[in-house]
């Protein structure tokens, strides 16, 4: 029985890391048709902001003066906000090209940048360039490493093993994020507009949806989530400019395996890939876990190219037909 408990407990951090890494990317990909290869660097922005805020590096914002846990929470929320704002900036300049076009229309008389929406391959190349710039700039400005943040809470004992409670709680946070996203999509105005835009952009536009504003909000939301992920993982990682690349691969794979539905897809792929990783890591070692995860992803992409959420869609349709 200890083995089962082991697997269950170790599943939580794996599930959390996949889901948290993927949600930001999934939103942007699902709604805007943009692949953000700088996603890892957005996570890095979140981590760096958390570390700086926590350790008193932000002028005018003495977050490090807050007591106890609220210091960490304050730093994390600050980081998510900063990353969301940064995302907004990126969206306006690079993704939609609004700022350069505004400038060029006044100087050259015509727009120079075509928006990257639905230009999957071009958005990959552009954001890869952005990621190179970000990593190197952060390295030059902040150095090779920032001070860390301690892991809150203590240990969780189970059987004769133990694990950091924080890592288990992250799974709860991941679930909470998914629920919150679901509510946003279903209950808010923005959510409705976003879903309409996913389904049929031109129709949505003709129905009066301001797709430009929807995209702006979406990219900011996705970036904010990436920042939150970075913030949540700050206590667990070494704060270096290259920390994003590990998240990037997992995020990608999870998004593609999950499919177009943000909430359902991420939940399913986090669950499935998390189980595979945990199982193989536990029995054969971390190398096996990693390889197994990647190979399962390959198989899933091949055999269910529309993603796991499309399976759910088909099931739902079939059930509707039967009724």
């Amino acid at each position: 029985m200890a083995i089962g408990l082991d697997l269950l407990v170790q599943f939580f951090p794996n599930f959390a890391s996949i889901v948290l890494a993927a949600t930001g990317l999934a939103i942007i990909f699902g709604i805007m048709g943009v692949i953000n290869l700088a996603h890892g660097e957005f996570i890095m922005v979140g981590a760096f902001s958390t570390s700086l805020a926590y350790n008193g590096g932000i002028p005018f914002l003495p977050i490090d003066a807050l007591p106890g846990l609220s210091r960490l929470i304050g730093a994390m929320l600050f980081a998510a906000l900063v990353t969301a704002l940064f995302g907004l900036l990126v969206e306006r300049t690079i993704i939609s090209g609004a700022v350069p076009n505004w400038i060029s229309e006044r100087t050259l008389g015509r727009p120079v940048v075509t928006p990257l929406y639905d230009r999957l391959l071009d958005s990959m190349v552009a954001t890869w360039g952005l990621s190179l710039i970000m990593v190197q700039t952060f390295r030059n400005v902040f150095g090779n490493s920032l001070s860390g943040v301690p892991i809150p809470f203590g240990e969780l004992s189970y059987g004769n093993s133990s694990i950091g409670l924080y890592q288990v709680l992250l799974a709860g946070v991941a679930a909470f994020v998914l629920i919150a996203l679901y509510l946003v999509f279903v209950r808010t105005d923005y959510g409705m507009r976003a879903r309409a835009t996913i389904q049929n952009e031109s129709m949505a536009q003709s129905l009066g949806v301001n797709t430009e504003r929807t995209y702006m909000a979406t990219f900011a939301l996705g970036s904010g989530l990436a920042g939150l992920t970075g913030a949540l993982y700050t206590p667990l990682l070494s704060i270096e400019p290259g920390l994003g690349s590990v998240f990037l691969v997992d995020a990608f794979v999870a998004v593609v395996v999950g499919g177009s539905s943000v909430v359902v897809g991420t939940l399913l792929s986090g669950g499935l890939l998390g189980i595979v990783d945990t199982l193989f890591s536990n029995v054969y070692g971390t190398f096996a876990g990693r390889i197994a995860l990647l190979i399962v992803a390959i198989v899933l992409i091949r055999f269910i190219p529309q993603g796991l959420s499309s399976l759910v869609e088909r099931l739902r349709e079939r059930r509707l037909e039967v009724d």
């Binding site: 082991d6 407990v9 170790q10 951090p13 794996n14 890391s17 004769n160 093993s161 133990s162 694990i163 950091g164 890592q167 667990l236 990682l237 590990v246 945990t278 890591s281 536990n282 070692g285 971390t286 190398f287 876990g289 990693r290």
Partner: peptide, 20 residues
């Protein structure tokens, strides 16, 4: 003996094995 890939940053299974 346990070998961990360079890209890995998740150690809960390792920690559990050490404890065992």
């Amino acid at each position: 003996e346990e070998f961990i890939p360079l890209s890995n940053s998740e150690f809960s299974s390792t920690i559990s094995r050490i404890q065992d």
